[in-house]
């Protein structure tokens, strides 16, 4: 009986982890700092979480499709230096568009490697991670570029609407739009089917390769957006801006509850993960905790949550995934060939 209660408690803890984390951070921050619980802090948390947030948002459909994209950081760096470099050449707004376009382009390269050349996404995006991190260093000779028009990007982080800055508003809207797409449209639901079982999805008439390719392009788009916004708001294009972003982005997505095994996840969960992580980081930083100690907390949190999830759910993950693919797949389709 006691054992059962513990399991239930664990399950609840996993289920409401984002709420628990946010409340814990608020209590801890409120107790340890005088003016932590203010609108300003909330605005700052939201604003600073935006860059990791875009990356995490882009990663979400990729993980739902059962793939992984390690190259988001490199795409972000490339987009950032492109934006800053193109500013004096083609003007501010076209340069920003060019930055995002570079992200989309690299995402398309990833899609090509995974879908056409059938390279495992872990290896393919590891390779593009190396290639574009290296290219970013080569193009800039390892020095950050500084913007010709540093004023242009400033409004992105300015006061906008109560707790929002323009870029965090864009981030929130993007998260909600993605939620609507994933949960309420047929194409969104098909993506889950592809991630649950690509061959079953194919047998039921879904173009699995198309969905996987689209998820990589989308990830490139969001990484491009992250790089563009980061470089404009700091008025500098650093070739290593994205190098440190991969781990926080994956952590945020996973804390939110999206699984690396595919077929599960949601953009609002990712939003929650981004906010919880951002709040924790901000509270620690305001307390003067050095960044490497923050990494310890983040890492422990990640391990704790994922272990708890595994212990509580047991083997439930597999069965619920199977159920979901049954629900999505039309009836009377031929039995899917597994392990194709």
């Amino acid at each position: 009986m006691k054992n059962f209660d513990f399991a239930l408690l664990g399950a609840r803890a996993v289920q409401y982890r984002l709420v628990i984390m946010l409340v814990a951070v608020a209590v801890f921050g409120g107790l340890s700092l005088d003016d932590f619980l203010t609108v300003n802090t909330l605005q700052s948390v939201l604003d600073r979480a935006t860059v990791v947030g875009f990356l995490a948002l882009g990663l979400t459909p990729v993980l739902i499709a059962g793939q992984i994209d390690l190259s988001i950081g490199s795409m972000m760096s490339m987009a950032g230096i492109t934006t800053i470099f193109m500013q004096p050449v083609i003007g501010n707004v076209p340069a920003a568009a060019a930055g995002v376009a570079v992200g989309i382009l690299i995402g398309a390269v990833n899609a090509l490697m995974v879908v056409v050349f059938k390279i495992n996404s872990l290896v393919a995006t590891l390779a593009t991670l190396l290639i574009f991190a290296s290219l970013a260093l080569l193009l800039t000779n390892s020095y950050p570029l500084s913007s010709e028009d540093p004023i242009f990007g400033l409004p992105l982080t300015a006061d906008f609407l109560w707790i929002l800055t323009p870029r965090s508003a864009i981030f929130l809207i993007a998260a909600v739009l993605m939620f609507v797409w994933l949960k309420l449209t047929p194409t969104g639901r098909n993506l889950y089917a592809v991630g649950s079982d690509a061959s079953a999805a194919t047998s039921s008439g879904i173009n699995a390769n198309g969905y996987i390719a689209a998820s990589f392009v989308l990830s490139g788009f969001f990484a491009g957006l992250a790089g563009m916004m980061q470089s404009l708001s700091t008025a500098a294009g650093s070739p290593v801006a994205g190098a440190v972003m991969l781990i926080p982005a994956i952590t945020a997505v996973v804390i939110g509850g999206t699984r690396l095994e595919g077929g599960r996840g949601s953009s609002l969960a990712t939003l929650g993960g981004v906010l919880a992580l951002g709040a924790l980081t901000t509270a620690l930083e305001y307390n003067g905790v050095p960044s490497y100690t923050q990494a310890i907390y983040t890492g422990l949190l990640l391990i704790l949550l994922i272990s708890l999830d595994r212990i509580v759910s047991g083997h439930g993950g597999a069965s619920s995934r199977a159920q979901r693919s049954v629900r999505v797949a039309p009836r009377n389709t031929p039995l899917p060939r597994r392990n194709a």
């Binding site: 994956i250 690396l260 310890i296 890492g299 595994r310």
Partner: peptide, 19 residues
């Protein structure tokens, strides 16, 4: 515990590097 290796080693890597 059969946790995904990518997540697990990202987590432990983060903790150990911090330590």
């Amino acid at each position: 515990l059969r946790i995904n290796p990518i997540i697990a080693t990202l987590g432990t890597g983060s903790v150990l590097l911090g330590l």
